[in-house]
Design a protein around this nucleic acid. Structure first.
Lengths: 147, 147
DNA sequence: TGAAAAACCATAAAATCCCATAATTTGATT
DNA sequence: AATCAAATTATGGGATTTTATGGTTTTTCA
């Protein structure tokens, strides 16, 4: 499985469609499911994205764990309930559900950010702000870190 | 077999019909039986649903285990006695039996909740309450779990 | 005969398909 | 290195299909 790398800023059209970056689609091109799975990020004001096959392996993992751990059973239940499978159209676009857009504060343009095995979708400004902040945090906590 | 993912809130009409979400129907589209199997959830105030083929594999599994496991035998007996096979109409709707609706406290609208290999049908408010509670439980038992 | 179930028809909103075009990247050739 | 042609990608919009939902009629069967 190839990785999600780099960042791409794309536009939402009048119908709410947005192109998934070609290189991200390439990272998904031998998947059975021609699309992505989206989530509200638990930690950030952004959307998390991954492949269906990765979703399935997460499902399998928590499925096994659930036998020994009720809390994790709850967790996996939540995982399924919140996952949004979304198919590409012919030209590689998706429609991001309105509640996810709202959560991420996305209106006109969105930033696709590679994260290796997954990716995120951000309001471009919010992403830059968040990145600056985490840079500050890093500097504060590790003054001699080479940055 | 594809997974039941995401959540969909649909309405019951005057005759008690309700559309099964298209994506759930898609997860069932090469089943012999054009419908679902419903039963009262043992653990929650909701309805559990699965495909007929999964019902059959449960039968096969408990058949093997039942000989050695009385508790499991009881459970599966209850499951089969309680299970209700319900066919889709032409447009993909079902009629949920009144006693199941009562058990789940469903009146006007119902929430179909994906659970991977199965799904649940909830009163929307009751589901949100239950989800919040299990989130609290998770936080309490695993404070550093990222949620 | 009467009530419930099934079949049938209708419709608005949403999603998808199809085609077109602008922008960008790639590659080839000088 | 510069330039042009070809392919790919992002974006836009109209036409078509699907989906959820509602209502009416027919069938079933107790």
């Amino acid at each position: 499985m190839s990785l999600f790398l780099s960042s791409y800023e794309n536009r939402l059209d009048a119908k709410g469609r947005i192109s998934v970056p070609a290189s991200f689609r390439a990272a998904l091109n031998n998947e059975k499911f021609a699309g992505v799975v989206l989530y509200r990020s638990f930690t950030n004001k952004c959307i998390d994205g991954l492949s269906m096959s990765r979703m399935e392996s997460l499902a399998a993992a928590t499925d096994k764990m659930g036998v020994f751990d009720n809390a994790l059973d709850d967790l996996s239940a939540m995982l399924f309930a919140d996952a949004r499978p979304i198919q590409f159209d012919v030209t590689g676009r998706i429609i991001i559900p309105a509640d996810l857009l709202a959560h991420a504060g996305i209106t006109n343009t969105a930033l696709f950010v590679g994260r290796g095995n997954s990716f995120q979708i951000w309001n471009p400004d919010a992403f830059r702000a968040a990145q600056n902040k985490s840079l500050e945090n890093l500097r504060a906590s590790r003054p001699n870190l080479i940055i």
